[in-house]
């Protein structure tokens, strides 16, 4: 089954129809998706800004990860589930927009950035954890993450405007 077939199959499911046609499903799910930006996006931005040495400098970076990670995972889980639900309401049209594809690419890149951090400079965190300034590689990861998440928010907003009117 090609991806295109999958999109049309999903679009034809009763689940998709309920998401699309119910008066309350979409507003409720979208509200959860948007307001969870406070937990997920907010914590990501604070973490990135800490890597750039501009916020919460009192805290060690390892301490930031320890305390923020559990909440980041919870926030991401909510974003992922609600995002998939919103997508399933109108998969063919979502996928037809450039913004949706861009958003997915940037999400993958954000994941790659996290993996890159942990495979390289993050491994040696003990060496710079208490340093007055974070190494430039750490700052680079922070900037890349910031740029990607700003782009992901922008594309998310763009999808709503690029979708054909109902």
């Amino acid at each position: 089954m090609s991806f295109d077939h999958f999109l049309h199959w999903l679009d034809a499911t009763q689940f998709s129809a309920v998401m699309r046609e119910s008066v309350w499903a979409e507003p409720i799910v979208e509200t959860i998706h948007v307001l969870t930006l406070t937990l997920f996006l907010g914590f990501v931005l604070l973490l990135d800004l800490r890597l750039l040495d501009v916020v919460l400098r009192r805290k060690r970076v390892s301490e930031m990860f320890e305390q923020f990670n559990p909440w980041l995972f919870r926030g991401f889980a909510v974003m992922l589930v609600t995002g998939l639900l919103l997508f399933s309401a109108d998969p063919v049209n979502f996928y037809s927009t450039l913004f949706f594809k861009l958003k997915m690419v940037m999400l993958v890149l954000a994941g790659v950035n996290v993996a890159f951090y942990h495979a390289t400079i993050g491994k040696h965190i003990a060496e710079w954890d208490v340093a007055a300034v974070t190494p430039w590689k750490v700052k680079l990861c922070g900037v890349v993450s910031l740029v990607l998440w700003v782009g992901i928010v922008a594309c998310g907003r763009g999808i709503a405007y690029a979708l054909p009117p109902p």
């Binding site: 406070t38 931005l45 907003r157």
Partner: peptide
Amino acid sequence: FPFVEIFHLLALGVLGGCMLV
């Protein structure tokens, strides 16, 4: 309009994140 909305949403993240912490 969407351009301004993006700033509104980003600031929502920062404000909400700080308030939650």
